[in-house]
Design a protein around this nucleic acid. Structure first.
Length: 268
DNA sequence: ATGACTGTTCCGAACAGA
């Protein structure tokens, strides 16, 4: 079985590339982030003609997550229990389309689009940290209920856990950039240290500059100035089944590429 | 060349991405 995660940065703008990629990649489950579409605008037929069922959660042009599967798609869940909403001061809180789950081939898969903190003192940073905390608490609860759970938390985590997960840590520090701060890294590493999850793709993508995202601006991709922020975190029972993983760099190339590449994990 | 941002909204400027 093969599980992939991919922030496509608009499913409508990327429909042809996603279809061609699915057609040649032999993946059983694809978790998608940033579909940027309402459910009514989602191109379901693209997936259906390749034999995939799709569950999508999209409210407007922002965020949007989906799971496509050809090994079953059961017990679909939109948002996790207690998932924080974002509220501007004096305005109603908005529950954003950032999490969707389904059971596919015996694996509970969550497609996750972790909020961007935007700035170190921006209200979105507190929102991001709380969002990760509640998700981690859920994870601990799920694993306490079933230590043998086949659980995959995959997606765009918007955290670079190690200094060499960005092209120049000094640049990030000097410019007070997000993704690399201690609180963000602590919130992420808690999934491993406290919940017992494993970043299963990392051991197979150990290149010194193996990234999953490159900004569209400033020639970041040609210069390989990227960031490693897309991860697949597996529960113990699922992690021990992993036999390989790869970053599909081809998908960051050429006209009409997303700014993220697909992360593919092999399970026996 | 892997190449100098991109996508959505609703028509052109604002917002978001990270």
């Amino acid at each position: 079985m093969r599980i992939a995660t991919w922030n496509v940065n608009s499913i409508r703008a990327r429909a042809d590339r996603v279809e061609a990629w699915l057609d040649r990649s032999d993946v059983d489950v694809l978790a998608i982030q940033e579909t940027k579409a309402k459910d009514e605008n989602f191109p379901f037929t693209v997936f259906e003609r390749l034999g995939y069922d799709v569950a999508h959660f999209g409210l407007n042009q922002w965020n949007g997550v989906a799971i496509a599967s050809r090994v079953g798609l059961d017990d679909v869940e939109r948002t996790f229990p207690g998932q924080p909403a974002f509220g501007k001061p004096g305005k109603e809180e908005i529950q954003e389309a950032r999490a969707i789950a389904a059971t596919c081939g015996g694996v509970r898969v969550w497609s996750l689009y972790v909020p961007n903190g935007r700035g170190l003192d921006d209200p979105h940073m507190a929102y991001k940290l709380e969002w990760l905390k509640v998700l981690r608490e859920n994870t601990q609860k799920w694993l306490a209920e079933d230590p043998e759970a086949q659980l995959a938390l995959v997606g765009d985590w918007n955290v670079a856990p190690q200094d060499d997960d960005v092209w120049d840590i000094d640049f990030f520090r000097e410019n007070q950039m997000t993704h690399v701060t201690e609180p963000e890294r602590a919130a992420f590493s808690s999934f491993m240290q406290d919940a017992g999850m494993t970043d299963v793709a990392r051991p197979y993508t150990q290149g010194e500059k193996d990234y999953t995202y490159w900004d569209y601006t400033s020639l970041r991709f040609p210069k390989n100035e990227g960031m490693r922020i897309d991860f697949q975190l597996y529960s113990p029972a699922l992690a021990e089944r992993v036999t390989g993983a790869r970053y599909d760099r081809e998908e960051r190339k050429g006209k009409g590429a997303s700014d993220h590449l697909p992360v593919v994990v092999e399970i026996e």
